[in-house]
């Protein structure tokens, strides 16, 4: 790890000001950033911690929406979202291990947009809105490919607004070493239709499986998607699975998510 400065502002305005400095990077839970810094793969001159800003913390219900502060840990979402949005809470409870869940945050996960991360599937699958210090971004517009989002320099995620579906579930097949998603499906049924988001599988990062959405909107049963096959083209191939295997798992995990949805 290289030497760096560290600040921990207590308001969003102070954080935005601190991030204006050359070489400054925001730090949330640090579960990816700190590991890459230890390997000297990332060298911020200044880390601006977002963990002491009250308005970025917590889970609260606003009508039919669940609002999760960007710096809320996975562990808090696991417990505090359980009553209002059990599908989301269950997903948060499957991220990493207890140490990761007690430090990692939803905002950090989304800004990093790891193609195998869990949260992007919930956000895209729920049709959530990502709020920042500058604007509100629909989930369909937020993710821009592997490790890429539409966030701009100095833009900080403040909260994620989840419309609460009628039922939802996350079915995750773990990459055996990292225990990220080798392939996972998030399925959410709303009054106006079904959304299906797939993570871990595509070289383009999280994506919506539109064929499955159409089939499930008509008939929300696992059998409705039994005949669908995702194409292997564009899927990730690595030590843990070929593109064909991941494409196959897209179907399996989608069916399992539908079966588990409540």
């Amino acid at each position: 790890m290289y030497a760096f400065d560290f600040v921990k502002p207590s308001s969003l305005d102070e954080a935005v000001a601190a991030l204006a400095d050359e070489g400054a990077q925001p730090l949330s839970g640090g579960q990816t950033l700190l590991a890459s810094m230890k390997q000297r793969l990332n060298a911020p001159e200044k880390l601006v911690s977002l963990r002491a800003i009250p308005e970025l913390q917590g889970v609260r219900r606003e009508g039919d929406t669940l609002v999760v502060g960007a710096a809320t840990t996975h562990a808090r979402v696991t417990t505090e979202a359980a009553a209002d949005y059990p599908g989301l809470a269950a997903l948060a409870g499957q991220i990493g291990d207890p140490a990761v869940r007690n430090l990692g945050t939803i905002g950090g996960s989304l800004a990093n947009n790891d193609p195998s991360a869990c949260y992007p599937a919930a956000v895209l699958g729920s049709g959530a809105t990502v709020a920042t210090n500058r604007r509100k971004i629909a989930a369909d517009d937020f993710f821009a490919g592997m490790f890429t989002t539409v966030l701009e320099e100095g833009e900080i995620i403040t909260a994620v607004h989840f419309p609460i579906p009628q039922r939802a579930a996350y079915a995750k097949f773990q990459q055996p070493a990292s225990r990220f998603a080798l392939t996972a499906a998030y399925v959410a049924q709303f009054a106006d239709g079904v959304r299906v988001a797939i993570t871990g599988a595509s070289e383009g990062g999280v994506f919506r499986w539109s064929e499955a959405e159409a089939a499930l909107s008509a008939d929300f049963r696992p059998e409705a998607v039994a005949g669908l096959k995702a194409p292997a083209e564009g899927m990730i191939g690595d030590l843990h699975g070929t593109p064909e295997y991941r494409a196959h798992l897209v179907g399996v995990m989608t069916r399992r998510a539908v079966a588990a949805a409540r």
Partner: peptide
């Protein structure tokens, strides 16, 4: 080495 960390070497 493709399996050079515990992210890919599965203990």
């Amino acid at each position: 080495l493709l399996s050079g960390s515990f992210m890919d070497y599965t203990m």
